[in-house]
Structure formats: structure tokens, C-alpha cells
Simulated assay, not measured.
Amino acid sequence: MSSPTSRPRRMTGIGRVLVIVYAIMALGATGRSFVQIVEKFDQAPVAYTLSAMSAVVYILATLGLVFAGRRGWYIVAWVAIVFELVGVLVIGTLSLVLPELFQHPTVWSVYGFGYLFIPLVLPFFGLWWLITHPPVDEKQGADASPAAVTR
């Protein structure tokens, strides 16, 4: 039970679901890239390196969301999720416009088609969550709001 002066829990409801989906994507991308790099890296080094890079991004986003109550991790989450969004849009577009570059799929190819387009939708939910749940300023206390901080 929390008292009026304690910090509210951030990882409840949709926030918890978001973290779980990011963690699943991190595991999936890590496993996929590991197998691709170990078994056939010489066939498509760029595609498989991009898959490994997406795995790192998903890991950082997951950690950033879990610890987003701390300003440093909040920034990590923002950077990782914006990078993810740009990555999925750029790689997704390039994989359609110049398919010869991506004869071997990456996590973000065709906007995450191999992952049911979750890589395309997920960053929008992540950014929404970060916008609506900014970190609490330790000096202001648990009840500080962005409006209270600017007064």
C-alpha cells in the first residue's frame, strides 16, 4: 500500500504490458540475430547485423521503460524508442523499394512483417507511454506534476 508521499507505481496496467512486449521482442530479436550470425553471417552480414542492432535497441528500450522513473533511464528509453521507430521506417521502406538489399530478412524488414508488424506499432505505444508518464523529479516529490515543476 502506498502513502500519499510515496512514489506511484509506474509499471501497472498498460505499462506492464508494454514492458512485457518489449522484453519478448528483445528475446526474439536476440535469438534470431544470434542464430543468423552464427550459422550464416557470410550470406548477409548487413541484414544480420541490423537484426543484432535491433536486439540491442529492444533491450535498451525494455530497461529504459522499466526504470523510466529515473531521469537517465527515461532518456535512454526515449533514444532507444525513437531509434527503433526511425529504424523500422527506414529499413521497412528500403526493404520494399530496394529488395535486393534485403534478400535475407531483418527484424524490421517490411515494417516487421515477420513479427506481425509489432515493430511498426510498438514504438508509437512506447512514445505515448513516455509522454504520458514523465519521471518524477526527486526534489519535488511524488506528487510533482510537469505544471507544478514549471511554476
Rank of each mutant, 00 (worst) to 15 (best):
P4H: 02
P4Q: 01
R9W: 03
R10C: 00
G15K: 07
G15P: 00
R16H: 05
R16A: 14
V19T: 09
V19Q: 06
I20P: 01
I24W: 10
I24D: 06
M25E: 07
A26Y: 01
L27C: 11
A29K: 05
G31R: 03
G31N: 07
F34M: 05
Q36N: 12
Q36W: 07
V38E: 10
K40I: 04
F41H: 07
F41K: 00
P45T: 14
P45Q: 11
A47V: 06
Y48P: 08
T49M: 05
S51H: 04
M53W: 08
S54M: 15
S54W: 08
V57A: 11
L60H: 01
L65T: 08
F67V: 00
R70S: 08
G72E: 14
Y74G: 05
I75F: 01
V76I: 13
W78S: 03
W78Q: 07
V79N: 03
A80Y: 02
A80C: 05
E84A: 13
E84C: 00
G87C: 09
G87Y: 05
V88N: 11
V90A: 15
V90R: 02
G92S: 12
T93G: 15
T93F: 15
S95T: 11
S95P: 14
V97L: 13
V97C: 05
L98K: 08
L98V: 13
L98E: 14
E100G: 07
F102I: 04
P105S: 10
V107K: 00
S109T: 13
G112L: 12
F113K: 14
F113G: 09
F113V: 09
Y115K: 03
Y115Q: 14
L116E: 10
F117M: 13
P119F: 11
P119L: 10
F124I: 12
W128H: 02
W128P: 00
I131P: 00
I131G: 01
H133S: 09
P134L: 04
P134F: 02
P135I: 05
V136M: 03
D137C: 01
E138G: 00
K139N: 11
G141I: 10
G141N: 08
A142N: 02
A142V: 01
D143R: 11
S145W: 03
P146V: 13
A147V: 02
T150K: 12
T150V: 14
